[in-house]
């Protein structure tokens, strides 16, 4: 396969032809915030709007997950325009996220925390109104707990359950602000065709899906696997 060389944040890097900027950057140790991408998903969903970068010659910042690399391309992941959009997107997510890290089993492994630190954004944002939904937490599964209020709708769990495992229990339903990852008829997971494999929990970047331990309390067990998932 042909390789292409480009510059990201002043660093000369090489990547396979046809690769997206996001992966070229991550592969070369340059972090670009992202939530909704998975490497083996061929069509970028481009939903989270966190991976904006600036490309020389383009008037506006572009999402790195949809931008294909080109020979000689000059990318800046820290341009003011890109950072402004990424920060706004993150703050919008945080404003609709119950920021209760002290009691959240995912604290420490949560990608929202990681991205906030990267972008220099406070977790308790002041700029926007707090807009929470009051959705029921589903603890019916013997293996994990699903708290849809903490979900950022990245779709990783949906993709894994469907494409990688071929089960297709989880999916998106409803529209707009009401959009949610759920099961058929919004029913409890235990009543669905879930096989309790827990792969969705591993894929989840936030505290929306967390493992139960043997005592039935919640355990944060997926930190390492998340790390390898996103940076390999």
């Amino acid at each position: 396969m042909k390789t292409v060389s480009l510059t990201i944040d002043g660093k000369r890097v090489k990547a396979h032809e046809g690769e997206k900027v996001l992966w070229a950057a991550l592969d070369n140790g340059i972090y670009v915030p992202n939530l909704c991408t998975l490497r083996d998903n061929s069509e970028p969903s481009a939903a989270c709007r966190l991976c904006f970068v600036e490309v020389e010659g383009k008037k506006q910042p572009v999402p790195a997950c949809t931008e294909t690399i080109e020979q000689g391309m000059v990318v800046n992941t820290k341009g003011p325009g890109a950072l402004r959009l990424a920060r706004t997107a993150l703050e919008l997510l945080l404003a609709s996220h119950p920021v209760d890290c002290a009691h959240c089993p995912s604290s420490g492994s949560c990608e929202l925390q990681k991205i906030a630190a990267h972008l220099g954004v406070k977790l308790k944002t002041r700029r926007f109104r707090k807009l929470l939904r009051e959705l029921l937490v589903d603890s019916s599964s013997p293996v994990f707990i699903y708290d849809p209020n903490k979900c950022v709708l990245c779709g990783r769990c949906v993709w894994v359950c469907r494409e990688r495992l071929g089960i297709g229990v989880l999916g998106f339903a409803h529209r707009g602000f009401e959009r949610v990852v759920t099961t058929f008829g919004d029913g409890p997971i235990a009543e669905s065709k879930c096989r309790d494999c827990g792969e969705c929990v591993v894929a989840c970047p936030t505290g929306a899906l967390t493992f139960k331990d043997k005592q039935g309390t919640v355990k944060s067990a997926h930190k390492e696997r998340v790390e390898t998932e996103t940076t390999q």
Binding site: L92, L153, H174, R175, F177
Partner: peptide, 12 residues
């Protein structure tokens, strides 16, 4: 009428 897919339209 927002489909809810992207952060800016859904939450912004």
């Amino acid at each position: 009428e927002s489909c809810g897919k992207c952060t800016f339209c859904r939450l912004g």
